[in-house]
Write a protein that binds this DNA or RNA. Sequence first.
DNA 1: AATACTGTTGGTGGA
DNA 2: GTCCACCAACAGTAT
Length: 522
Amino acid sequence: MSHNCIHWFRKGLRLHDNPALIAALKDCKHIYPLFLLDPWYANNTPIGINRWRFLIESLKDLDSSLRKLNSRLFVLRGSPTEILPKLFEKWKITRLTFEVDTEPYSQSRDKEVMKLAEEHSVEVISKTSHTLYNIDRIIDENSGKAPLTYVRFQTVIRDIGSPKKTVPAPTEEDMKDVLTPFSKNHEKEFRIPTLEDLGLDTSCLGPDLFPGGETEALRRLDEHMKRTGWVCSFEKPKTSPNALTASTTVLSPYVRFGCLSARTFWWRLTDVYRGKKHSDPPVSLHGQLLWREFFYTAAVGIPNFNKMEGNPHCVQVDWDDNPEHLAAWREARTGFPFIDAIMTQLRQEGWIHHLARHAVACFLTRGDLWTSWEEGQKVFEELLLDADWSLNAGNWQWLSASAFFHQYFRVYSPIAFGKKTDKYGDYIKKYLPVLKKFPAEYIYEPWKAPRSIQERAGCIVGKDYPRPIVEHEVIHKKNIQRMKAAYAKRSSEDQDDKTKTKGKKRKVNESIKDMFEKKAKR
DNA sequence: AATACTGTTGGTGGA
DNA sequence: GTCCACCAACAGTAT
């Protein structure tokens, strides 16, 4: 019972399956559960208010769970590299624990923190629990490269074996000799800020459909895992992007913040599957967790993963710079009701179905607006509760046919795609009430409705709802040709590279030959 | 080394 | 509702 420990929560906002927290409690006298609001994040990409709310709720839940163990969460605002050394001294810290985070910023931050810890003679323990596997191990097993296809990825992890088992949450018994030295001033010094404290305008808050926190995450997991038949027959491509209530679990925000452990989710699914016929990856729920793992691996193994330039697997495309088009997409006024409804749901509720993401991402990039996927990535980063650096970058590359997916001639129609699962446009009417009186016949293409029908619907296209900003039928064919050109340029450059490498190799071989010949002469 | 196969989730029009 | 061929045609991987 000798250590004074900080357990530093970053992601991993939970007590269950938290091996670094368990490590902190071993031979521990004082435990300080800590969360730092690092300004780096908000300074780099704006964070939408729904996402802030999710984080604050998650912290509140964490604090409330810690209180049940006679502990508290300590929250401070500021840069970890500035705050932590001060806390090391103030609290006479001997050990720092945290969960491994593979994002580039986190990696550089943690490297600096580990150096500072060493300078203060603080032992550091970090554990992998955000992902199913140790991501470096996957890359090692694939001869140092990130697998570029899901099939290849599956082969690699099959050799590694199942994910590790989870660890239980600490109990009161585990905590009986561990003290959290919080004072009467705790609320003053270390309290969780409110949205108002953060200077946010709460009038644009949407409905709180997905409250943050571990408690809600585990409740939601239980709720879905009870649906045995549904879980076993789950096939992602068959779920609906435009159902009025989510057709999938919406556990992604909880997994993103670590309110729910991916491994806990994995093993609960294994329990449900046991002895039953069930779907398999890539379409199953296990498969969804593996997609997450796939993109985490790619994000670690591929440099400049959130950019086109300097990203060796990303097709280099001459995207247009059209701020008007980008703004129309972001602000749900493209004139395509299916697209605008999705972008409205995204802004209001912070979550949209995966296939809805496909539809709007294809529309913004290779399908219609020919705008860089990096712009879309920024908007998703701001508005999605589950915005995850690796998945966001990976999926935007996928959808824009820049990497992983290459069949650029398969283009989502902003009119036809939604009709498959919502013939009458109920989803559109929910999120775009201005169109709610339009007959089903015209709901996906209101500009085609005769003037009399527009008048009867109380919505004149061009006045009450925008005209379409592009002509999809024409533009998408033109864009396929632009993609074709980008791919052709890439393969010709690859050919050039190969020729150069061959040339180099030949030169090297020749110089070696020369050396031997010279030696022989001597 | 050339070739065949595969790829979570396209659209259209017809049977 | 489901299946199919067709549209035009990609990269990565296995053989």
